[in-house]
C-alpha cells in the first residue's frame, strides 16, 4: 500500500427517493486504505450534508451500510477503494429488493416483520439445572448466529425480487430468516417445532438452491449448505416420509438428533 496517493476517485452516487432520482458525480481525494463509506462521508461533509446513508460500526459488525457498489452487493465499510482500477468510476446505489427511502437508505422493515413470525427459542422450562452443552454441539448454531442482518442475502435472492413472493399472499421468508430458523432448530436445548411454519408460511420450498445468498454473505455463513438444505431435509422427513416419522416417534428420537 503506498502511503501518499494524491489521487482522486470519481464516485457516481444515486441521489433521490422512490419517485425520482439520478446519479450525481463527485470527486473525492484518495487516502491510503480508504473504503467506500469513507468516500461517502467525505461527500457528506464537503458537498452534500443531506446525503442519506446508514452506518454504525465502520467495521463490518453491524450490517447497516449495505449498498450496491459497481453492481456488487457490499458493505460499504468493508469495500476498499484501492480494489478498483485507477480512474475506474465507482457507482454506488441502494440495494434493490427493498423500497427506497432516500439516496442509499432503503426501508428494510419487511425483514423485522418476518422475524416476528418465527417461533422464539423455547427451552424445556422444567429443566432448571445448570446447562451442560458441549462446544462441538453448538459450532453450527454459532455459525448461524454470526449473522449481522445486513440483508444482502435477502437483496440478491431472486425469489424475493419477485414481488408476488415478497409482498403477495404466499411470502418467502428469505435466506436471512432461514438462517435464523436453523439457528433455533439446531440449538441443543430448543424444543419448539418450526417445520410447519417453514413449509406453510415461510415457503422454504421456493428456494431452488441457486446459492446467490451464500456468495454475498459478508460473514461467510454457508447459508445454503449448512442452513437451508438441512432444513429442507427436515421438512421433507416430516411431511413426505411418514414411516420415518413414525419410527422416530416410537423410538423417542427427539427432533434434534
Amino acid at each position: 500500500m503506498s502511503e501518499h496517493k494524491a489521487k482522486e476517485a470519481t464516485l457516481k452516487v444515486y441521489r433521490g427517493d422512490g419517485k425520482e432520482g439520478k446519479f450525481e458525480t463527485y470527486k473525492v481525494p484518495m487516502e491510503a486504505g480508504m473504503v467506500v463509506l469513507d468516500a461517502i462521508h467525505y461527500i457528506q461533509a464537503n458537498y452534500a450534508p443531506e446525503l442519506a446513508v446508514r452506518w454504525n460500526c465502520k467495521a463490518a459488525k453491524c450490517g447497516s451500510c449495505s449498498a450496491e457498489v459497481n453492481g456488487h452487493p457490499s458493505l460499504m465499510c468493508k469495500t476498499r477503494m484501492d480494489h478498483f482500477e485507477d480512474g475506474e468510476e465507482i457507482v454506488v446505489q441502494p440495494i434493490k429488493t427493498f423500497p427506497l427511502i432516500k439516496d442509499l437508505v432503503t426501508d428494510v422493515s419487511w425483514n423485522y416483520r418476518v422475524n416476528e413470525k418465527i417461533k422464539p427459542f423455547t427451552p424445556d422450562e422444567s429443566d432448571t439445572k445448570e446447562w451442560v452443552i458441549y462446544q462441538e454441539d453448538i459450532e453450527r448454531v454459532q455459525e448461524f448466529r454470526k449473522c449481522i442482518e445486513c440483508f444482502l442475502c435477502q437483496n440478491v435472492c431472486h425469489v424475493l425480487r419477485d414481488h408476488e413472493k415478497k409482498d403477495g399472499n404466499e411470502q418467502f421468508m428469505g435466506p436471512r430468516f432461514l438462517v435464523r430458523a436453523a439457528g433455533l432448530e439446531m440449538h441443543p436445548k430448543d424444543t419448539a417445532d418450526r417445520l410447519e411454519y417453514l413449509k406453510e408460511e415461510g415457503h422454504i420450498g421456493y428456494c431452488n438452491i441457486t446459492k446467490c445468498c451464500t456468495e454475498v454473505c459478508p460473514e461467510e455463513i454457508h447459508i445454503t449448505d449448512n442452513a437451508i438444505i438441512p432444513l429442507k431435509e427436515r421438512v421433507v422427513d416430516e411431511y413426505y416420509d411418514p414411516l420415518g416419522k413414525m419410527i422416530k416417534g416410537i423410538f423417542g428420537g427427539g427432533k434434534k438428533k
Binding site: D17, P49, E50, A52, V53, K102
Partner: peptide
Amino acid sequence: RVGGGKKYNPGWHL
C-alpha cells in the same frame, strides 16, 4: 444552518 428538507437528512440530524 443546513439545507435540504426533512427527509432522511443526516446534516439536519447532526
